[in-house]
């Protein structure tokens, strides 16, 4: 059984059919990259995996999204889902609190911690996010004082602190400089050992560098996004099954 099994997924924003008939499986401990031109539904698809789409007024989701064998849209409780499936956003969004409190935010929602447990979790999460050394002496200072790349890694640490199985990333490096981007990519390779990662990216080179599997989305004449093909990254990039994939990767489209 795959970690995620998505069958006949259709998403509507009001009258607009944003995502059409997506069928895909996502395996545990892989990095899956979602690529495609703007507006093709990659982010919509990503947000279905932790039901963040629910927050958009007028949204309708049809089909089934099975996570660990259970349809997440049949269950009312989204809190537990978001505990297991975390998300890192395009623009880093640290809370206006200390670094320490930021990391622990998600954990404290669900558990009462002792001081020791708290410090341990903070240290572990920041280490996993490759941020520990840079901030270990100023944990109680405001998170807003960090650089862009550091803030994004903090958001990753915050997401990891609740110990999810999956980390969803929506263009996590698009707002960062090349050096921060590389460090986050290295981070992702490390994380793959313990987590499943699904990342939306506009950066083809990044997708090729770090992902095991790639899903290529495209947009049809009626402005609906759909999945063109999905497979091992090396295949999708070097011997794609679909001509549209080939064209896109060759850089004929934006």
């Amino acid at each position: 059984m795959s970690l995620f099994e998505i069958k006949n997924l259709n998403v509507y924003y009001g009258a607009h059919h944003a995502l059409k008939d997506v069928n895909m499986n996502i395996e545990a401990n892989t990095i899956t990259a979602l690529i495609g031109p703007s507006g093709c539904g990659k982010s919509t698809f990503l947000r279905c995996l932790d039901r963040m789409n629910d927050l958009i007024p007028g949204v309708k989701v049809e089909g089934s999204v099975m996570f660990e064998g259970k349809d997440i849209y049949k269950d009312e409780d989204t809190l537990e889902l978001r505990h297991r499936v975390g998300m890192v956003f395009q623009k880093a969004n640290p809370f206006p609190m200390s670094i320490y409190d930021n990391v622990l935010y998600g954990v404290r929602l669900h558990y009462k911690l002792t001081k020791d447990e708290a410090s341990r979790i903070v240290e572990e999460s920041l280490k996993k996010a490759s941020l520990w050394n840079e901030v270990k002496d100023r944990l109680k200072k405001s998170a807003l004082g960090l650089s862009g790349g550091q803030q994004q890694r903090l958001c990753i640490a915050r997401t990891l602190a609740v110990n999810p199985s999956v980390v969803l990333m929506d263009e996590p490096t698009s707002a960062l400089d090349p050096i921060s981007t590389r460090s986050i990519e290295d981070l992702m390779r490390e994380l793959k050992k313990d987590y499943t990662i699904v990342i939306v990216t506009h950066n083809m080179a990044e997708a090729a560098r770090i992902s095991d599997r790639t899903a290529f989305f495209y947009i049809d004449e009626r402005k609906r996004g759909f999945l063109v093909e999905e497979g091992a990254t090396s295949e999708v990039f070097f011997s794609p099954k679909d001509k549209r994939t080939e064209d896109y990767i060759q850089g004929r489209f934006s």
Binding site: D50, R82, F89, K91, F95, P96, G106, L109, R158, V162
Partner: peptide, 23 residues
Amino acid sequence: DIKLGSIALGANDFQTITRVVLP
């Protein structure tokens, strides 16, 4: 963005409001 960040971590409305929005 920070409201979304809180919700994505599994916070319910009461928690998001009291721990992020109101502060």
